[in-house]
């Protein structure tokens, strides 16, 4: 089975916060609707901003804040190529030893799998050099079977769903 967040990670939710006093960043406004987007005939390609909008409202497992406000995800680190059907998201844990990193990555991945057309290949990884066990986490996130198995775990699924429910 997965070692993903299951033990240490979930323990953190109830226990003392690891990063109790994070820096809060400004949220971007809603994407302005352009006349082009309102034109029936013209197609709009899926772009980085659109993918960013999918994930920016995911809430952090241990704060009442969104990943955007914590600067865990940034528009500049989201790449999308509609023609090649690829999406790549690099996220930055708030502190290098954050035990939530896997859980955050999993939430992002699940959200993208649910929200993007099936043709897309989704790559979610930690921004290079921002986490102690970067490599291990990336490997877990890239493994389809592990991700699927993680979602069979109802505790894990519950936490992920809570993150995805967003702010009310």
């Amino acid at each position: 089975m997965l070692r993903m967040a299951g033990g240490t990670g979930l323990g953190g939710v109830g226990a003392a916060l690891e990063n109790a006093n994070p820096l809060v960043f400004r949220r971007q406004g809603e994407r302005a609707v352009t006349p082009r987007e309102e034109d029936e005939a013209l197609p709009d390609a899926i772009d980085g901003r659109e993918v960013f909008d999918l994930i920016r409202a995911i809430s952090d497992p241990e704060h009442p804040l969104t990943l955007e406000e914590l600067n865990v995800v940034e528009e500049a680190r989201v790449k999308a190529n509609d023609a090649n059907s690829t999406v790549s998201v690099a996220f930055t844990p708030t502190i290098p030893h954050c035990s939530m990193a896997t859980l955050i990555g999993l939430s992002i991945k699940v959200k993208l799998i649910r929200s993007l057309p099936e043709r897309f290949k989704v790559d979610v990884h930690i921004t290079q050099g921002t986490h102690a066990s970067e490599h291990a986490v990336n490997k877990q996130l890239a493994d389809k079977e592990r991700v699927a198995a993680a979602l069979e775990n109802s505790h894990l699924l519950e936490v992920v769903n809570q993150c995805l429910s967003g702010r009310s």
């Binding site: 609707v33 987007e37 309102e38 029936e40 197609p43 709009d44 899926i46 659109e50 909008d53 999918l54 959200k111 649910r114 929200s115 109802s154 505790h155 699924l157 519950e158 936490v159 992920v160 769903n161 809570q162 995805l164 429910s165």
Partner: peptide
């Protein structure tokens, strides 16, 4: 092909995914 439609589809599908699952 339209972004505004996709946005609504994402919202709707997300809600249906959450149906009957823990943590909703």
């Amino acid at each position: 092909k339209k972004r505004l439609v996709r946005k609504e589809a994402v919202a709707a599908r997300g809600e249906w995914f959450l149906l009957g699952t823990p943590g909703r």
